[in-house]
């Protein structure tokens, strides 16, 4: 082939069909927003039931996680996510989906070395770097507070 990598990457760029970004942005905004509305509704319902705010702060996310896990198991979450993209990825429901889906997928490899070892393959980095950044935040916060 009389063509170098750079020339070829230009052809590839020209021929590759682009993702419909505007549609993707709008859908992810709307569906992500709807998930947050569900969270707000849950909050209001729990408030009506006279549950204490501390418990509600835990109850709302866990209810969303539960719904997301069930939808993942029913293969419905992936269908919504196909349109919603980041709209279903960013809320806490996306995190639940990232944990439950490998758990379902790797059941065939056994409970310990399948589910046990693979359950955090997608969410693992989030947990690791989330923990690391919270430690760094804590140190910075401590220095500033002591310093002041």
């Amino acid at each position: 082939m009389q063509i170098n990598n750079k020339e070829y990457s230009e052809i590839v760029e020209l021929r590759s069909v682009k993702s419909p970004k505007t549609r993707d942005f709008v859908l992810s905004f709307v569906i992500g927003g709807l998930i947050c509305v569900v969270g707000e509704l849950l909050l209001k319902i729990f408030e009506r039931l006279n549950i204490s705010p501390d418990i509600i702060a835990m109850l709302v996310p866990s209810t969303l996680i539960f719904i997301s896990a069930v939808l993942t198991g029913l293969k419905l979450y992936e269908k919504i996510a196909k349109y919603a993209g980041a709209g279903t990825l960013v809320p806490i429901t996306g995190f639940a989906n990232a944990v439950v889906s490998p758990a379902i997928e790797f059941k065939n490899e056994g409970h310990v070395l399948g589910i046990g070892a693979k359950i955090f393959t997608i969410a693992g980095p989030v947990i690791l770097f989330g923990t690391v950044s919270s430690v760094i935040y804590g140190i910075v916060y401590y220095i500033i507070k002591v310093g002041l």
């Binding site: 293969k75 996510a81 919603a84 989906n97 990232a98 889906s101």
Partner: peptide
């Protein structure tokens, strides 16, 4: 899918390519 990409139930948008 499970060997090369993500678990089937994982929600994501696939690019047009």
């Amino acid at each position: 899918e499970r060997q090369y990409r993500f678990p089937l139930e994982y929600g994501a948008i696939r690019p047009q390519t």
